[in-house]
Computed example of a mutant assay.
Amino acid sequence: MSTPAERLAGLGLTLPEVVAPLAAYLPAVRTGDLVYTAGQLPLVDGKLEVTGRLGAEVTPEQGRELARICALNALAAAASVVDGDLSRIVRIVKVVGFVAGTPDFTGQPQVVNGASELLGEVLGDAGRHARSAVGVASLPLSAPVEVELIAEVR
């Protein structure tokens, strides 16, 4: 059986550095056996490569890939409060995905699937979770997608 770190490597991915907060908050907080992450934007090396809204400047396929990046950043934030070890994640309990879109864009679930699928690929059954996919008018830095999660850890 492979570890989450091995599955991540098998996908050609590495856990990124934790994204620095944009304001007065922590990237992740552990309370008891739960870790709550702050909303994670699709930042790579500290910058957004794509900005805009789904249904206008951003395609659903791009949004799905951006949601994967958000989920990877959320895993990094969660791991940061459990000694950097993804194996300490027992289960992803809940994912909330925010999708900035035009008023007529209704593909939020398909966009946030990018995050959900990555979590399943990395964590197996422990990555299956409850989820909300919410459409919003705008997000910080004009990001198209933001993802936060709650994880049970040991």
Rank of each mutant, 00 (worst) to 15 (best):
R64E: 13
D125G: 15
S142H: 11
V111S: 03
A74R: 06
G52V: 09
L54V: 11
P144Q: 10
L66D: 02
L119P: 04
S142G: 14
L54F: 00
D125E: 15
T59W: 03
E65W: 05
L34K: 12
E117M: 08
P42R: 01
A133Q: 05
V58R: 00
T51Y: 01
T37R: 08
G114E: 00
N113C: 09
A115T: 09
G124Y: 08
L123P: 07
K94S: 14
V136C: 12
G101L: 05
V95I: 09
K47M: 11
R91V: 08
E117P: 08
G135F: 07
P144M: 06
A71T: 06
T31L: 13
G114T: 00
A130L: 15
A20D: 15
V90D: 11
A67D: 02
R53T: 09
T59M: 11
A115C: 06
T106K: 14
L48A: 03
D83S: 09
R91T: 08
L119K: 02
R91W: 04
D33P: 04
A126M: 04
A130Q: 11
V50L: 13
V122Y: 00
G127W: 00
E117W: 10
H129S: 11
A143N: 00
G135Y: 08
A133R: 00
S142M: 07
V93I: 12
S138Y: 04
G55T: 04
E57M: 13
I69G: 03
V19S: 12
P16H: 02
A20V: 15
D33C: 12
S132D: 14
L54Q: 01
L54R: 06
K47H: 15
P103I: 07
L118E: 01
V81A: 07
A76E: 06
R30A: 10
V99Y: 02
P144K: 00
Y25S: 08
L22A: 15
A126I: 03
N113G: 14
D125T: 14
V136K: 06
V95R: 02
F98Y: 10
V112K: 01
A77L: 07
R128G: 15
V35I: 12
G32Y: 00
T59H: 04
L54W: 00
L119A: 03
T31Q: 13
G135I: 10
G39Q: 08
G101Y: 01
G107Y: 01
D33H: 07
V81D: 09
E49Q: 14
